[in-house]
Design a protein around this nucleic acid. Structure first.
Length: 896
RNA sequence: GCGGGCGUGGCGGAACUGGUAGACGCACCGGACUUAAAAUCCGUUGGAGGGCAACCUCCGUGCCGGUUCGAGUCCGGCCGCCCGCACCA
């Protein structure tokens, strides 16, 4: 028996040696080399450090990276920090500590914890989005996009210098040209209603507002402000189409499709009675046009401002003001439909009916045209609105005889939004619009064509996706490299002027929504053109946290390059990320923005890759325990005691409570850190434990005591391997040789499919099979290499003790000799079924023919007393294994 | 409401593109070692029934039905749970 397994000593030793020997250094790819890029979603380095849930993904990618490297790939597996962000700024506002200082501290903690887990990152490639040598290139990309326009004809971005300027625009001077360009740039300035959160002192994107609150639960109100936007909508179609080729979870792809929200419809122009103006509405149900009984405009619709007559001004203004104060929460699904008459009337272009125009906040300003045609008979919302305000309800579609609510629908007492056929058009409808009896889908096309032919409307495609509001009123973000000159022109900074670094300020808090913290740095803000003496001001907004993460996979390829964001040859060699692992919460934000930037950079010839992530895996969430009392209140773990089997009591109150799974959080005091677990069981045991719990994608509940089983397993491994190394056998049984070969085969296949839990099960099975048997050094070395990705410290230690030079991670992954494994088998078990039910088995040589197998099966069945006399031998099914071609199973049809 | 995913022992989970359901582990129970406990090792464990015994029979993957020689896996219809998105006209 060898010495006992001292995981602390072994793990400490190898942590140091790996760092000293630079074991995980990734060289730049050489021509023709096989490369593999495996990436974790890099974390925001929060103040609380890692808990045991974070490493689920990190361990999975670490195992894959080690395996792929041994299997002959040049593997890029880096780590970095998404280190701009709100918490550091909040901390700075509270304490005055510069975000850079607190962020650096947090990064140190994260990195220490990652090293503790034995994660084999190439730290020479470490990046942080908040470091000037990184954000120089985030700013550079911003400038590239600002200096580009989207060419709809070519469906791609092009340099702004290639935008043809019409002569009449040129004639109007520089500002006119700028205006013309701005309307087409990928980055542009625009007034927008934004979500201002007074508590956070910042503006949030729509995606960051949940039910009218910030992520932290603070109130958010809408205010208009001049914003920097990115024209992501130009890419809607390509972002949608690109999903097809990606190996991503179906749910994530669907979220993106849903988010982009493509819908085909018709824009229809309604003339306003007594005016030359028209209202353009968007509808997907042009077939219901004859059933329009009112129009509704969003309160923010520009026509409201312009055209509402004095008689209705007061009411409308009051309503608009109320709507502006409403948060998204109040404008949500179940809210009552409200509105106010505008005093205006519109003319239905196909029936000439005069219908009232309302202002109603159920109409969203930034979807479609911000105006809808009200068809109460065939739209739930319009129906609710018409009911409330006593508006007429005119059905145009017959639900069909077998529909119970048909009569109600035809009488205008119910709403029908489903399939049906067209009724006779209402009196006054223009001839040829559609025919009664037509299916509604056909009528929809007929109406659209009718409108297009008479120039009353046109088919359009509308998207849910909005342009991306890119500016934030924050300090702790990338400064936007734009100067606004006093003559009204605007320029972006040249690459030679980048990075534009953050100035020091005495207070990180903005004073209001239009005076961000950067305004405090007067000396930084004011600039003078050295050539012309013209004065200008820098853009005061900073970029959102998403900016740095939109392109970070590129920087890892070439993190120290001072003259380019990435060397084109390196970018080409590594290409897209082959495996990207992270949480599903980034389905529509980070993953969509990153795809957008890649497409734009690809269009502009900066990179060769059009999609950042070829394959995506979402790791499941790791939860912990908490306790819930009868009223549903969740209680912290340290206030609960176990009294007997499964009985838990809340100590302060004495209430019985139930144990439930709950997210780890400070408030529930159920956070478990990897440090705790590693101290108790070692990091190899922690790795094995976390990975053995189930598939990477699945959720799981952490129980620290469960790590004991993994430690027990590793002790057995240690005893087996260390003993074998101390006194290797000259020869081993064929059973050991076969078991080793099978292990290699099975683990390799599992690793290729990211089935890490079953890979560990294979290691356990192997140990069960060979423990205590003599083993040759050759087999041991094979075993160690297969073990290495999972328990790197132990495998490395044993590898060294076996007298091997160099790291086990620089050794070749073993290959299973399939032919040897097959040849070693003399007989195989063949299951005999009768009508799908197992009746027994026969043992034959693997080469046995179908006839042999059939005969043996019949004999076996007869022996156990079954009547096989009337059996048609040809109806016996013989099932062969696809890989080996050997018979696995025989099914005999049930007699009688 | 729309979309996506999932229902397998006491528990976590296995089962390749239809082919021996419950791998592997936890827990439990029994045994060995020990003065004792821990640790370790060996064995049992889906349910019901039968046999002195090696074993045998029946039932079993949320429910109902279908396809098939054969269904956890495929199809149709329910029930339940989880996760996104949601006044998108």
């Amino acid at each position: 028996m060898s010495e006992t397994y001292d995981f602390t000593a072994i793990e400490t030793k190898w942590r140091q040696l790996w760092a000293e020997r630079d074991t995980y250094r990734t060289p730049d790819p050489k021509p023709g080399e096989k490369t593999f890029y495996v990436l974790d979603m890099f974390p925001y380095p929060s103040g609380s450090g890692l808990h045991v849930g974070h490493p689920v993904g990190y361990l999975a990618t670490d195992i894959v990276a080690r395996y792929k490297r041994m299997a002959g790939f040049n593997v890029l597996h880096p780590m970095g920090w998404d280190s701009f962000g709100l918490p550091a700024e909040q901390h700075a506002i509270k304490t005055g500590e510069h975000p850079e200082v607190s962020t650096a501290k947090n990064i140190k903690t994260f990195r220490r914890q990652m090293e503790l887990l034995g994660l084999g990152y190439d730290w020479s490639r470490e990046i942080a989005t908040s470091r000037p040598d990184y954000y120089k290139w985030t700013q550079f990309i911003f400038v590239q996009m600002y200096e580009a326009w989207f060419d709809k004809d070519q469906n791609k971005a092009r340099p702004i210098s290639e935008l043809p300027i019409p002569e009449e625009v040129k004639a109007q001077g520089r500002l006119a040209v700028q205006e013309y360009q701005d309307a087409r740039r990928l980055v542009y300035f625009d007034d927008a209603l934004v979500n201002w959160c007074a508590e956070l002192g910042t503006i949030l994107s729509n995606e960051e507002v949940f039910d009218g609150k910030s992520e932290q639960g603070f109130d958010v109100v809408r205010v208009p402000i001049r914003q920097v936007k990115m024209r992501i909508t130009a890419y809607a179609e390509r972002l949608l189409a690109g999903l097809e080729a990606l190996d991503w979870p179906e749910g994530i792809k669907d979220s993106q499709r849903n988010w982009i929200g493509r819908s085909e419809g018709v824009e229809i122009r309604f003339a306003i009675d007594g005016s030359n103006e028209t209202v353009t509405t968007f509808t997907t149900r042009a077939d219901t046009l004859a059933g329009v009984t009112f129009l509704a405009l969003a309160p923010e619709h520009p026509l409201v401002e312009r055209l509402v007559p004095a008689s209705h001004r007061t009411d409308v203004d009051a309503y608009r003001e109320a709507a502006a104060r409403k948060s998204d929460l109040d404008r949500t699904v179940d809210a009552e439909k409200t509105g106010v008459s505008s005093g205006l009337y519109a003319i239905n272009p196909v029936t000439s009916a005069k219908v009232e125009i309302f202002v109603a906040d159920y109409v969203l300003p930034d979807y479609g045209t911000g105006a809808v045609m009200g068809v109460p008979a065939h739209d739930e919302r319009d129906f609710a609105f018409a009911k409330k305000y006593g508006l007429p309800i005119v059905p145009v579609i017959d639900p069909g005889a077998d529909v119970p609510v048909r009569d109600a629908v035809l009488k205008g007492e119910a709403c029908w939004t489903e399939d049906g056929i067209m009724l006779d058009p209402p009196a006054g409808t223009k001839a040829g619009l559609y025919t009664a009896g037509q299916r509604w889908r056909d009528a929809r096309e007929a109406v659209a064509s009718f409108l297009e032919a008479r120039n009353l409307g046109q088919r359009v495609i509308s998207y849910n996706l909005r342009d991306w509001i890119f500016s934030r009123q924050r300090y702790w973000g990338e400064p936007i490299p734009i100067i606004h000159w006093e003559d009204g022109t605007r320029t972006s900074l040249d690459v030679s002027e980048l990075p534009l670094t953050l100035p020091h300020v005495d207070d990180y808090k903005p004073t209001s929504y239009d005076a961000p913290a950067l305004a405090r740095a007067a000396g930084w803000v004011e600039v003078t053109d050295p050539e012309t003496g013209m004065k200008g001001r820098r853009e005061l907004n900073t970029m959102p946290q998403w900016a740095g993460s939109c392109w970070y996979p590129l920087r890892f390829m070439d993190p120290k390059n001072e003259s380019a964001l990435v060397d084109p040859s390196k970018e080409k060699a590594w290409g897209a990320v082959d495996l990207y692992v992270g949480g599903a919460e980034h389905a529509t934000l980070h993953l969509l923005y990153a795809r957008f930037w890649y497409l734009a950079l690809h269009d502009l010839g900066v990179i060769s890759t059009a999609e950042p992530f070829s394959k995506l895996v979402n790791q499941g969430m790791l939860t912990s325990f908490a306790y819930q009392n009868a009223r549903g209140v969740i209680l912290p773990v340290d206030e609960v005691e176990e009294r007997g089997e499964g009985q838990f009591v809340h100590v302060p109150t004495g209430d019985p409570v139930e144990r439930i799974g709950a997210k780890m959080s400070k408030s529930l005091r159920n956070v478990v850190t990897p440090d705790d677990v590693v101290a108790q069981y070692g990091s190899d045991a922690f790795r094995v434990c976390l990975m053995f719990m189930g598939p990477v994608e699945g959720g799981r509940v952490w129980e620290t005591e469960k790590a004991a089983a993994s430690l027990k397993f590793l002790r057995r491994v240690w005893n087996y391997a260390a003993t074998g190394i101390a006194s290797p056998a000259d020869a081993e049984s064929s059973a050991v040789t076969i078991a080793t070969g099978k292990l290699v085969e099975a683990v390799t296949e599992d690793l290729e499919n990211l089935r890490l839990n079953t890979a560990i099960a294979e290691l356990m099975k192997f140990l069960n099979a060979v423990e205590g048997q003599p083993v040759t050094k050759e087999s041991l070395l094979t075993f160690l290499r297969v073990l290495a990705p999972f328990a790197p410290h132990m495998a490395e230690e044993l590898w060294e003790r076996a007298g091997q030079t160099g790291s086990v991670f620089h050794a070749d992954w073993p290959k299973a000799d399939a032919d040897m494994l097959r040849a070693a088998v003399e007989t195989i078990e063949i299951v005999v079924q009768e009508g799908g039910k197992k009746r027994g088995s026969v043992h034959l040589a693997p080469q046995a023919s179908d006839a042999d197998v059939r005969a043996a099966s019949m004999a076996m069945l007869e022996e156990t007393g079954r009547d096989v006399s009337g059996l048609d031998v040809n109806r016996i099914i013989v099932v062969r294994d696809k890989k080996t071609g050997w018979v696995r199973l025989v099914n005999v049809p049930k007699a009688g």
